[in-house]
Simulated assay, not measured.
Amino acid sequence: MGYFTDKVVVVTGGSEGIGRALVDSLLQEGAKVATCGRNYDKLYQLQKQYSGKAFIVHATDVSNEHDCQQFIDEVVRVYGTIDILINNAGISMRALFEESELSTIRQVMDVNFWGTVYCTKFALPYIIASKGTIVGMSSIAGYRGLPGRSGYSASKFAVNGWMESLRTELLDRGVHVMWVCPGFTASNIRNVALNKDALPQAESLMNEGKMMSAEECAVHTLHAIEKRKRTLVLTSTGKQTVFMNRFFPALADKLVRKFYFKNGELVK
């Protein structure tokens, strides 16, 4: 009997990447899992794989408030409660702000920030009752603004601040609120990052092979949930970036600029 055995865990965006790794690990740990995503075919294949487990899937666009309410209502109808909510669903972008349509920024904010707010709002009464856990999958971009990711950084800064407010509000209610900030992690999020016209770019310009795997990120995240940590910053690069930006911000500006630009052009 482990920590997650028989706990009802909701993971948004669980059909691929870190979300999928979390779903895999949680089911192996004996949790009752529910996940959602926009791609019904991927969800269907995932449900077939775990047909013998306590596992439900729901086609959901987390940027849509009504979709989020339907998803959470379905989880409660099937399982009766929610112990842990992991707000994992997210999208990124790669485009200079001056070249970007406002719809790019708006779409990133709707998924990353409002998707987290919607799902948490509808799950909150059950998590308070179970003295459970709320997790926000944030990013190093929530500590340090990244070029070409202005909307993504804004959404993750918003998630961090909102989660901190929520944690403080619930401090005496027995609810654990935590945000996780992976550094560069091998994930599909960069492959579908929005371009300046709010369309998926379909490829990553980063070396995915040298990054932390989604599976390792999931292991660290679940361990932090069990230990009820306040925050989790992953990878040495991520920790260095947060440190540099806090104590040497001007130097961090130059180093980040050098990493992302070559000959004045955004290359990552």
Rank of each mutant, 00 (worst) to 15 (best):
K32D: 00
T120P: 10
L26I: 02
K32E: 05
S103T: 13
L22S: 03
V11D: 03
M93S: 15
H66Q: 15
I18W: 02
S103E: 14
I128Y: 05
Y79I: 04
I84D: 08
N64M: 09
Y50P: 04
Y79T: 02
T116W: 08
A34P: 05
L46Y: 11
V78G: 02
F71Y: 11
E29G: 01
L124T: 08
T116Y: 07
K48S: 09
R38H: 09
C68Y: 01
S51W: 11
G19R: 03
L43M: 09
R20E: 10
Q45N: 14
N88S: 12
S92W: 02
V10R: 00
K32G: 04
S100F: 05
Y44L: 13
I72M: 08
A31Q: 04
K42Q: 12
G13I: 05
P125S: 12
S100Y: 07
I105G: 04
V62E: 05
I82D: 04
G37W: 03
R20P: 00
I127R: 02
H66E: 15
D61W: 08
E29T: 01
D83C: 04
N112C: 09
V76E: 03
H66Y: 10
N88L: 10
G14W: 05
I128E: 13
R94I: 12
V62Y: 08
G13T: 09
G90C: 09
T60G: 04
G80N: 05
S25H: 13
C119V: 14
C68P: 03
V108Q: 05
A95M: 06
N87I: 03
D73H: 11
A95L: 10
A54S: 15
E101R: 10
R20S: 06
F97Q: 07
D83H: 02
Q69C: 06
Y50Q: 08
E99S: 14
G115V: 10
Y44A: 14
L27A: 02
K32I: 09
D73P: 01
A21S: 15
H58Y: 15
V9N: 04
N39F: 11
V117H: 14
D24I: 10
A123T: 02
Q28A: 15
F97Y: 14
N87Y: 03
I72D: 00
V9W: 00
E16R: 15
V108L: 02
Q70F: 01
V9D: 03
V23F: 08
K48P: 03
M109I: 15
Q28W: 01
F122G: 00
V111S: 01
P125D: 08
V9I: 12
W114I: 01
R106A: 15
A95F: 10
N87A: 12
V76I: 13
E99K: 13
E65T: 12
L46M: 13
D24A: 11
A21N: 06
E98I: 14
E74G: 04
F113R: 02
F55K: 00
I56Y: 06
D61I: 08
G115S: 09
K32H: 12
Y118Q: 03
I82S: 06
G14N: 02
V75A: 02
V57R: 04
Y50F: 14
S15H: 03
I56S: 10
V23D: 01
I72Y: 00
I84N: 05
K32Q: 12
D41N: 12
Q49K: 15
S51C: 07
